[in-house]
């Protein structure tokens, strides 16, 4: 008897779990295939970098597109490399990324078509309040990096092949340096932006961050302050710190299963005047400034 009861309990486990989950979304209950193009409620899959999703921008703009198209947009926020890889495998319908050279390679490989500029944001250099390398208000990021290296002041790097990491490497390259973890003052973390800012805060280190993440994390990292890049995007004196985003529609000729019918209107909508206005306003209430500027970077 007891044995049977145990077995019955074990057999029930998945069922119990299933009961507990019934109100969750609709996906588990529906048969596979609903994500396809012809289903009743179409789904658009968007792979993007963490910066657009984590800043809350997509939450602010996507409901309008969903209302307009009757489709659901599923956002997969990940690193730039992985986002493009998802597109190259046909696992998403459209990508929104910031990595100029890799975008061009993506198009060249035939994985994407219809690339549009959507907006740009910028990077800033943050560091300890006492600023041992003396970079505060330096108009050039490359000069600031050189000062940090000269002072052998601690610098933490994302070290994760993200767009931010790529930008940091290009700044080092512009002054003829390729710092590695063998240097005592250079720490390559392999972490996300939030974790990297925490680490910089604890180590009293400098780091390169996108402005949006800096603004939302600022309150948790009291030892850090913004040193290079200006108070707002418009005030940023160094245009090499500008970070342009493109939307790329995945090539339906190469990946017939993608939802091309929805991807093209999405790209058009993203670059429409109405959407641009929403993007420009995003962040103004909370931070008193735009986090993204909806035009081609100057």
């Amino acid at each position: 008897m007891q044995l049977k009861r145990l077995l019955a309990t074990l057999a029930m486990l998945p069922l119990l779990a299933a009961c507990g989950s019934s109100p969750v979304a609709s996906t588990p209950a529906e048969p596979p295939g609903t994500a396809g193009a012809a289903a009743a409620s179409p789904v658009l899959r968007l792979a993007t970098t963490t910066s657009t999703a984590d800043s809350g921008l997509l939450d602010a703009i996507l409901p309008a597109f969903e209302a307009l198209s009757g489709a659901k947009v599923e956002v997969i926020a990940t690193g730039t490399g992985q986002a493009l890889e998802l597109g190259a495998n046909g696992d998403v319908d459209v990508v929104l990324v910031h990595a100029r050279e890799r975008e061009e390679a993506f198009i060249a490989a035939g994985d994407g078509i219809n690339r549009y500029h959507v907006m740009y944001n910028d990077f800033v250099i943050v560091g300890p309040v006492d600023d041992p390398a003396g970079i505060k208000d330096n108009p050039r990021a490359s000069a600031a990096f050189a000062a940090i290296a000269a002072a052998r002041a601690t610098f933490v790097s994302r070290g994760d092949e993200s767009g931010t990491h790529a930008k940091e490497q290009s700044i080092w390259a512009s002054i003829g340096m390729t710092p590695t973890g063998t240097l005592v003052w250079y720490r390559s973390l392999g972490q996300g932006m939030g974790e990297t800012l925490i680490t910089a805060n604890e180590l009293g280190a400098y780091t390169l961050t996108d402005r949006a993440t800096w603004l939302s994390t600022r309150k948790n990292v009291p030892n850090l302050t913004l040193l290079v890049g200006g108070a707002t995007i418009e005030d940023n004196p160094d245009r090499t710190l500008y970070n342009p985003y493109s939307v790329i529609v995945v090539n339906p000729a190469k990946h017939p299963t993608v939802n091309h019918e929805l991807a093209v209107p999405f790209a058009n909508w993203l670059t429409s005047p109405e959407t641009r206005a929403v993007i420009r306003d995003f962040g103004r209430t909370e931070y008193g400034q735009s986090l993204f500027l909806p035009e081609v970077a100057p």
Binding site: L10, A11, L13, P14, L16, A17, A18, G20, V24, A25
Partner: peptide, 23 residues
């Protein structure tokens, strides 16, 4: 609650399958 339920559903179902096959 939604993400908690999904956590329980996904891990519960996975454990159920692992039990049915693993024992």
């Amino acid at each position: 609650w939604e993400i908690t339920r999904l956590s329980l559903y996904v891990s519960g179902a996975a454990l159920g399958l692992s039990t049915v096959a693993g024992l």
